[in-house]
Write a protein that binds this DNA or RNA. Sequence first.
DNA 1: CTGATTGAATGTACTTTGACGCAC
DNA 2: GGTGCGTCTTTGTACATTCAATCA
Length: 787
Amino acid sequence: METNLSPEHFQLIRKVLRENPRKDQDRPLKRKRRKVHENSTKDPEPKVTISIDSSDSDSRAENKSEFVDLGLASDAGDEGSEDYDEDSDEFEDVTEPVTFDALGDLQVTIAAKQETKKESGAKARNICSNEERQRRRYYHMAYLVCLMIHGAIINEWINNPKLLRKLSKLIDENLFNLLHPEKDDQLPLRSTRKLLDGLKKCMELWQKHWKVKKKYAGLEYYMRNWQEIDGPIDLKKTLTQSEFVRRVLKGHGNCDLATQGFVALLRSCNVNARLVMSCQPPDFTNLKEQESAVSREYTYSDSFKYPIFWCEVWDKFTKKWITIDPTNLKTIEQVRNASKLEPRGVAACKRNMMRYVIGFDRKNGCKDITRRYASWFNSKCRKRRITSSAAGSEWYDKVITALHRRKRTRIDDYEEEYFNQRDEDEGMPDNLQDLKNHPKFILEKDIRINQVLKPNSKECGYLNVNHGRQVLKVFDRRDLIDLKSAKQWYMEGRILKVGSRARKTIKKSKGRLRSMTGIDGEAEEERLYSIDDTELYHAPLASIPDGKIEKNAYGNIEVFVPSMIPANCCLIESPNAIKAAKLLDVEYARAVCGFKFEKGNSSKPIIGGVVVAKWLAEAVICAIDGIEYSLELDERKKQELKALEDWNVLLLKIRIKSNLNATYGQIQEHGTEANEDNINDASADDSDFEMPAGGFLPVPNADTEAVQPTVADSDVQELESQKEGGFVVASTNSKSSPTRNICATESQKSVDIDEKLGTAAASGADEETDGSYEQFMEELGFSDQDD
DNA sequence: CTGATTGAATGTACTTTGACGCAC
DNA sequence: GGTGCGTCTTTGTACATTCAATCA
């Protein structure tokens, strides 16, 4: 019914967020709501309910996705650690039963850990748990992405042709000419002046046309704290595009809608206007468990003084964007170093913390333009953004890229230039906090032990501390040099240049090692060098033609980085590489790619393959292929053997069963039909395994239900417990599949089959496979058995 | 009110080449 | 008697960073 965002749009975002892809593409846009049962600190079993409510969403079919899910699913924390345990007990006490109710709501109930840390006796700090921090981080991300998508959708609606057609009638020819001034060659400023004049007139026109009927019903787009997030959120009915257009044309609604309408008005007369949105997700750097009770309720005007939405117009004469807030502050400005739209004062920042200002342009571009509006972007704003961490930054870039749907233009170049200039112009912070980890400045005392200032570099400023009683020197970070020890440089494939001198000598304290070795007392000295004191390490070449490689004392070659491989050699990374090289009896060296650290001070080299001369590499690779193939065959053989054994056991059981039946009479079987279905289902899943005719796959964990149906009788089930393997029927070979018969059959029939199959399994089959396998191995010349 | 200091919790850099017993 | 393979173990310390609370 309306022009909507394409499904790819959302798929992209989902991909970005590493969401578990869901097939049900038809689910409507979901709203999320999160409730905490009151007294979560006192309740011995506090519960958190996340409910994603779809009941009041509109009918736009392609909007969907469980953002809560995807937020929790993406785990950014463990990527760096190699030894990260898969079955980590991080969440061992947390259970998450997930239930879908009829309305499509999703409930995730997280039972929090029972034990409390109050026994320690320490004063209870108003700080949330580590898990809660993580949750807030994810929630922040999910919230942010929702807001950005919202902005993108509204921005598309603004381009609605019907809306633009009707709005364009409001602009008369004079005004239109003002908005599109001629280029004044003598005084370009005059053109800009005209444009500004036109924009002002537009603004006045719009203010006259538009009656801001309603104040905000709640917090709307303004920032909520974590208690408000967790508490019930009263979401109004969702807007649809037709309703949006109707309201804009009518001139009804709140400030936000008025601004959006204003952007539409400008676009209707072909002005390059941007919809700007300052996204206000909850603050993830706020770790307070509870918002302090004394924080007074800020007045309405404090909270909503600064706008969430505003407008930008491209001025082609000055090559800058002009900022217009037509409804809230009713101002037009050309932002140089500070913007009037940046919230000032504690009260205003409580609800409007400028962190993510996104500009959506008429060609569906999406850019982060926070730099224009945040005057202290580097020192203050930066820390509150998810981009402060590398992983968060990567994530954010992906989201922006996914929402940015146009090619780069010259305007982007000009804007980037402007942002760079703003970065340059941002002054030095005047307090300690903001200088900590500042991207451009560093305090003298924060220079690390392995860093040194460039010779002759001078401080670029001073900071007064303690009301001027102390003065600290501040340096430019560009004057810093990172230093490393010779060994550390070697780990990066670099060695010291001849005659280089240490930039710094530090005392190395190796307390534990020292106490272990019995040497104590004076600390060892460590000489540190800069990268300029080093050069790339070139390993000695392998000898020609035999390819002999120089090895270290341990008989290995160190390949910490690719450049450490001798120039006429190559690294073959395969677990079977050593075996292959040995088999071929060629010169090789085991490659140490790193170390694994274990308890105490012991460390083990990680052998990442072998280094061989280039002219021998192909042979080694072929040998590896062969070995892998033979191993595969070996594995196949094992599987076959196992299958045959299992068959044997099964048939034995059936024989016993039929004997029992014959001796003591028959027992009613039940559920055979259902069982048969199960078997067929199970076999269908395994259809991608290619097994020889009559093949049965041993099920790795044999005590699963899949095994049980094959032998339904209770007598046989007892026997079943003796064996460890199970099997399922391969779907392709119905001819030789006896299970069907067994399940359906009466005792007499099964005996016949028993005899046929039993003998085959017991006698011929084993030897046959064995024989053929060995033949095969001999042909290949890769026999593993060293008899 | 602002910003320095303090204290607690969390995060990260650093470390840089077995020993033994058993089966074949 | 030599070789190869599996098993043992499952963890540390020091310092940096970050926040809320408190103090000046």
